[in-house]
């Protein structure tokens, strides 16, 4: 059977100690919460950290609170299942809860965490392969090689952002709280990512994502639509997150974020800008959805054909808009 490489497991007593441990061990170390992303990659020898710093047990990362206004603060080590079961979140943050519920399978949601899904490694079907397969194929930019196997002339890695919760968090204007050697800082989730498959997180060495803050809905509605082959288990082939504020059919504010079409979530602010002040009718939805499909550039490194995935961006964006428009205006306005 596939087994893990050897490593030292460290169990810090506090968040500060965890940060210090990561700083001490540098590039040799990795933080681990649920492990559902990291451990398979270690078994396939895609990454082989010598030191794992466990953070799942830390109190500082495990709280979950929804205020009366609907603003939520979720500890990064909360499991996706615990998010789904939270009535406050389901009520106030339906788009986020929807996305969390679409991640993988029930058993993996029981272990996989809120922070883990936001940070989930980029994926590529030249990279997410076993050691033997990659030996046969040759190493790629993401495994220390000289060449991108997808686009051999490319100077950069095109692995795909594959988080379901990241696009909706960006659309909701969420904030990530990050702890590091210099203390805590707030980072808009939109700024958490970089368009580089080989270094997709804008986090410094030793930094840990500790909490996710979702702002109060304040009349905004949200929705996430995931494209995948099967009804469970699969990573997104594309995702569309929509946050929408509508008053009597007229758009007052709108954010659209695509997932799984680039190395980071792609916010299409210019595209939806024109919607503000307009009625959100089928024609408007169709126009925005077509625009999103035009702008999306999926590549041939995930399941099914990239041509189809690009085409389907239009469909899922349209579905997300319709869903968001139909969803009840979040309570406590």
């Amino acid at each position: 059977m596939l087994r893990l490489p050897r490593f030292s497991y460290l169990r810090p007593a506090s968040l500060a100690e965890a940060v210090a441990m990561l700083a001490d061990h540098g590039a040799q170390s990795s933080v681990i919460a649920g492990g559902t992303d990291l451990l398979p990659k270690m078994k396939r020898r895609q990454v082989q950290p010598a030191v794992l710093v466990g953070i799942a047990h830390l109190e500082a990362l495990s709280h979950l609170e929804t205020t009366a206004s609907g603003a939520a603060e979720i500890g990064a080590s909360r499991t996706l299942t615990s998010v789904l079961k939270d009535a406050g979140l389901a009520h106030h943050q339906p788009g986020y809860a929807q996305a969390a519920g679409l991640v993988s399978t029930p058993a993996l949601r029981n272990t996989g965490t809120v922070g883990g899904n936001l940070c989930v490694d980029t994926r590529c079907n030249y990279y997410d392969m076993t050691e033997d397969w990659r030996t046969a194929s040759g190493s790629c930019l993401k495994t220390g090689g000289e060449l991108c196997r997808l686009a051999s002339s490319s100077p950069r890695c095109w692995a795909i952002s594959s988080s379901d919760t990241a696009p909706i968090a960006v659309a909701l204007g969420a904030t990530a709280v990050v702890a590091g050697p210099e203390g805590e800082r707030d980072v808009p989730v939109a700024s958490l990512y970089r368009d580089d498959g080989n270094a997709h997180l804008a986090l410094g060495r030793g930094e840990i994502l500790t909490r996710l803050r979702l702002p109060a809905p304040d009349g905004w509605r949200s929705s996430y639509v995931k494209l995948r082959r099967r009804s469970s288990m699969d990573f997104p082939l594309a995702g569309a997150a929509v946050a929408l504020k509508i008053d009597r059919g007229v758009v007052e504010g709108c954010r659209l974020v695509l997932g799984a079409v680039a190395s980071q979530p792609v916010e299409l602010s210019d595209l939806v800008h024109g919607l503000v002040g307009q009625r959100l009718d089928e024609e408007a939805i169709e126009e925005v959805a077509s625009g999103a499909s035009r702008l999306a550039k999926p590549l041939d490194n995930a399941d099914l054909s990239y041509v189809w995935r690009k085409r389907m961006v239009k469909e899922i964006v349209a579905r997300a808009f319709r869903q968001a428009a139909m969803s009840e205006v979040a309570a406590v306005v």
């Binding site: 079907n125 997410d128 076993t130 397969w133 046969a136 194929s137 082959r229 099967r230 699969d234 399941d303």
Partner: peptide, 20 residues
């Protein structure tokens, strides 16, 4: 693809799940 198996894993070799 290029002489290599495209889907040598249970995740990527797609088969219907109970919910399909």
């Amino acid at each position: 693809r290029n002489g290599l198996l495209h889907h040598p894993s249970v995740l990527e070799y797609k088969t219907p799940l109970s919910s399909d």
